[in-house]
Amino acid sequence: MTKLYGEIYRKQGRFVYARVGRKQFMRVMENARKKTGGRISSISGRDAGKSMEILYTFITGEHVVNIKVEVDRRKPVIESVSKLFPAASLYERETYEMLGVLFEGNEELENILLDSKLSPRFPLRKEDKHGKG
């Protein structure tokens, strides 16, 4: 499994967590889809202080593989997987609107839940706890 998903760093119950570098990310996702036919269940973003962690929850039959990518916090950009997995577009929009991560290649990247005028920008970022953008 390591070859497929990157460096596995945790196994907890049925959940597997793997770390993937920014450069190998797209290739890993394409391979995963081709080899296993699984689907993206969820994309979770997290403000980890020095970087942004993006977790792709990938479900294939009996396995749940969480593929984690780290991006630079000052310039959080990553390729979009919405061409591979149309459903991912929704989660990428939510991650964008909550944390400001730009998903390159996603044409529908705009707020999905929040009102763009009334709500504060990127509310789940740590520095935004007091309303500053």
Binding site: E94, S119, P120, D128
Partner: peptide
């Protein structure tokens, strides 16, 4: 569907909504 936003007490705008 929608669970996430922040209610910012300072600006008051989002609070209204």
């Amino acid at each position: 569907c929608d669970r996430v936003t922040i209610v910012d007490e300072r600006t008051g705008e989002s609070r209204g909504v």
